[in-house]
């Protein structure tokens, strides 16, 4: 158990909670910058729709959230849980006994899914 790491981890959780609160309360007011890639190219990036999607999710509109970015809505919570477990291992100084490991094929599948999704969403 590393106290300094526990402090950093707590600060990160607080920052995330603050960001979620700000997003829930103010994202609808149109001050958020939106996607840089989309502004520059006119194309959707693999993450486009995540602000709107998370905003919808934080207001309990799950179906709407998935319609904005289905792949991101699955991958982001999965990655956050997996990273949370890694951070817990980092704080206590050795890895947690249960971890989400994509493995050799899982990682490749994720890469292919993200790239295919990126292409397809710009064609449809």
């Amino acid at each position: 158990m590393h106290k300094d790491r526990a402090l950093w981890a707590s600060l990160a959780v607080l920052a995330l909670a603050g960001a979620a609160y700000a997003l829930r309360e103010t994202a609808g007011k149109g001050w958020m910058p939106g996607c840089v890639f989309r502004k520059l190219t006119g194309l959707d990036c693999p993450g486009c729709g995540m602000t709107r999607g998370t905003y919808a999710l934080l207001h309990g509109r799950v179906a709407e959230a998935f319609s904005f970015n289905p792949v991101g809505m699955i991958l982001l919570p999965l990655a956050m849980v997996a990273l949370g477990i890694e951070v817990m291992g980092w704080v206590r100084g050795k890895p947690m006994p249960f971890r989400i490991k994509p493995g050799r094929w899982g990682a490749t599948v994720v890469a292919v899914v993200v790239i295919v999704f990126w292409i397809v969403r710009n064609l449809v």
Binding site: C35, V36, F37, R38, C45, P46, G47, C48, M50, N69, G72, L75, L76, L78, A79, M80, A82, L83, E86, I100, P102, A107, T108, V110, A111, V114, I115, W118
Partner: peptide, 26 residues
């Protein structure tokens, strides 16, 4: 492999760098 980190960056940062990161992570 930094796969989870690269996913978060891809989905949140709106730049193609995250995708490059995922490919390397895979």
């Amino acid at each position: 492999n930094y796969l989870w980190q690269s996913i978060v960056v891809t989905v949140l940062c709106c730049l193609p760098f995250g995708v490059v990161s995922i490919v390397h992570a895979a």
